[in-house]
């Protein structure tokens, strides 16, 4: 076992982990706020990817295409919250979780079905030109570095937003105690709507950053949703930093076991690590005990 190999594998895992993390964040926020398990999160990301790919194929400038694609799924999140999710928010208790889950499952089917029907072989790949950059003596592709930097930047912005802005604090107060927040004059409905839209935007970011390292094709939705779910739960539902921590942990576990053991066992190891984390700490790595 040589050290450079190990460093390279861990760095790769870190890059993958950041993507897992940003994937989990969008899901964790929506669950923390309204108790909705967004089973269409991955499909929303793929939708953004396909919109961007179509626009670029049609001759739109890349930057503009990215902006349109990410905004489009943000608006989709907004619309979903204002329409389909309204009866869910009125439902009390466990019924809310189940209804939200099933409705979003339906939405996931619809997005997935339309994409596979209209654009079965479409995929988004964003090529970043330039020679590899050496980090800790390991040559890293520019795409990976830019994607990771973007995710770290967005993660930091989110952290600052939730810590220092009034709206961010209001959001955290609703996650902790909706009744209490309401008594303090916070409007939970508004917070939920804005955060659902934000979650859509984050799904778009997932599509863009992932496309810089691997192609995002129209069938990737379900597996992205599943990973988002696992990352969000391992990190602790409702916790942004938890999602990133879980993402990085699982990313590194995945690449290290894939490199040293083999591909199919690595998936099993990844899932077992996730399951053990949940069983040992049901509230998640950084979750608050309810």
């Amino acid at each position: 076992m040589n050290l450079t190999d190990l460093t390279a594998v861990v760095l790769d895992g870190f890059v993958l982990g950041l993507q897992f993390g940003i994937l989990g964040v969008g899901l964790t926020l929506v669950y923390g706020l309204g108790g909705i398990v967004n089973l269409a999160h991955g499909q929303m990301a793929v939708l953004a990817a396909i919109i961007i790919a179509r626009l670029i194929d049609g001759g739109t400038q890349t930057a503009l295409a990215l902006l349109i694609g990410v905004t489009a799924v943000g608006i989709l999140g907004l619309v979903l919250d204002l329409t389909l999710m309204q009866p869910v928010y009125r439902e009390p208790g466990e019924g809310r979780v189940l209804l939200g889950l099933l409705l979003m499952l339906g939405v996931g089917f619809i997005i997935d079905g339309i994409l596979e029907w209209r654009y079965p072989i479409e995929a988004l790949t964003l090529r970043v030109s330039g020679s590899p950059i050496r980090i800790l003596d390991v040559p890293m592709r520019r795409g990976s570095i830019i994607a990771s930097a973007a995710i770290i930047g967005i993660g930091a912005a989110l952290a600052l937003f939730f810590r220092y802005t009034t709206f961010g604090r209001a959001t955290r107060s609703v996650i902790q105690d909706e009744q209490g927040a309401r008594l303090c004059g916070v409007n939970p409905a508004l917070v939920r709507t804005v955060v659902f839209a934000l979650s859509g935007v984050l799904a778009g970011v997932v599509a863009v950053t992932r496309a810089m390292t691997t192609p995002v094709d129209s069938t990737a939705g379900v597996s992205l949703t599943v990973f988002a779910l696992i990352v969000a739960v391992v990190g602790g539902l409702g916790s942004v930093s938890g999602a990133f921590l879980a993402g990085i942990l699982l990313g590194i576990v995945n690449t290290v076991s894939a490199f040293y053991i083999g591909s199919y066992v690595s998936t099993i190891i990844l899932l077992v690590v996730a399951a053990i984390t949940i069983v040992v700490r049901p509230s998640g790595l950084l979750g608050v005990k309810s």
């Binding site: 389909l84 009866p87 209804l99 099933l102 409705l103 339906g106 939405v107 079905g113 596979e116 029907w117």
Partner: peptide
Amino acid sequence: QLREVFYGVVTVALFLAFR
């Protein structure tokens, strides 16, 4: 090809109507 879309529409519609 449209099956999944229909499945989704039916799922959403049914759960809105018959909770």
